[in-house]
Nucleic acid binder design. Structure first.
Lengths: 160, 160
DNA sequence: CCGTATCCTGATAGATACTG
DNA sequence: CAGTATCTATCAGGATACGG
C-alpha cells in the first residue's frame, strides 16, 4: 500500500484530522463497550435486559453506549410491548449499522486466527449451505456479497 | 445473522468473555491512538518521527502505542541506520499486522460512505489498474484477494 | 423492574523534563 | 532526535440512588 502524494497526504491527515474517516468512525465507536454492544446487535440482541445479560458491563455504561450508537444513527429505537407490561423500546441496527458488519466480523476473524490458535470459539457460516463466510479485500466486482441475515453463527465450544 | 444455540451461546460469551475474539482483539488495539498508528503503518509510515508528524498524538502516547502493538506482534522493530547517524529501529507490520487490513479498511470505507456524504477524502484502488478496492463479506472462495502491497491510496482533496 | 442521573474511582492522554 | 519517566487532568466505568 503506497501513497500517491506521499508527503502532502501525510501532512494533511495530520493537520486536518477531520479528513480521516478512520478517526471519525472511531469517535462514534469510542469505547470497547460500544463495540461489544454493536457485536451483540449482530448476534440478534435488541432489548436492554438482554444486552445487560450478554455484554460484560454495567447498566449506566450500557445506557451511554446505546445512546451513543443511536445518536450516530447506527441503531434506532423501536417501540414494542410485551403482553401485560408497559410499552418499551428495543434497539435495532439501521442500514448504516448493518454496514459495520465487515468491521465486527474482521475483528472477530482476526482474533480467531491469532488469539485462539485457529480453533475459533464462534464461526460464521452461510445459513443455507453451511459454507464458511469470510471478509476479504478485493477489486472483483462480481462476487456475491452476504448480508447479515444470510449468516449464521455457530458455537464451537461445549457447554458445561 | 442468527444463533445456532441462541441462549447458551449468549450466556457463555457473557460469563466467559475470554471466548470473545472481538473483545480480545480490541484489548490489543485498546485506544484510538493505537488504531491510528496502525493506520499509519498501512500508509507506509515506519519511523518514530514520521508517526509523530502524521498521527495527532504525543510522544509518550505514541511510545505506548508502539510498545503495545509490538508486544501483540502486530508490528516488529527492525534496525536501520541512516548515513552519519547511530543505528535506530523502525516499526514494520508483521504478517499478523497485515491481516488487520480489513479492519482498517472497513472502518475507513464506512466513514467515507456515512460521514463524508460519499465524497471520500482518501480512496483505495488497485495499484496497477486503478480499480476501486472494496472490503466484502462473502462465501465465495474463488476470488482474488488483494494484499496491501497491491493497493494504492489516492488523495481526493486539493492541497492549499 | 427498566432505564437514567449522579458521584466517585481508576485508567489513559498529554505537558514537561530527562537520558542516550 | 529517539524514547521514557513522572505528574496532572481528563474521561470512561461502576456503585448507588432515584424516576417512570
Amino acid at each position: 500500500m503506497s501513497m500517491t502524494v506521499e508527503n502532502q497526504l501525510a501532512d494533511r491527515t495530520r493537520w486536518r484530522p477531520e479528513l480521516c474517516s478512520i478517526a471519525k468512525t472511531l469517535d462514534l465507536l469510542s469505547t470497547k463497550t460500544t463495540f461489544l454492544v454493536l457485536r451483540e446487535c449482530f448476534y440478534g440482541t435488541s432489548r436492554f435486559e438482554d444486552f445487560i445479560d450478554r455484554v460484560p458491563t454495567s447498566a449506566p455504561a450500557l445506557s451511554r453506549a446505546l445512546k451513543q450508537l443511536a445518536s450516530a444513527h447506527i441503531v434506532t429505537r423501536v417501540p414494542y410491548r410485551d403482553p401485560g407490561t408497559r410499552a418499551r423500546d428495543e434497539y435495532r441496527l439501521t442500514a448504516a449499522g448493518e454496514d459495520l458488519l465487515p468491521v465486527v466480523m474482521s475483528l472477530s476473524l482476526w482474533g480467531n486466527k491469532y488469539l485462539h490458535n485457529g480453533s475459533p470459539p464462534l464461526s460464521f457460516v452461510d445459513a443455507r449451505t453451511g459454507q464458511p463466510v469470510r471478509v476479504c479485500v478485493t477489486k472483483d466486482s462480481d462476487l456475491s456479497e452476504a448480508r447479515s441475515s444470510d449468516i449464521e453463527i455457530r458455537a464451537n465450544f461445549t457447554l458445561d
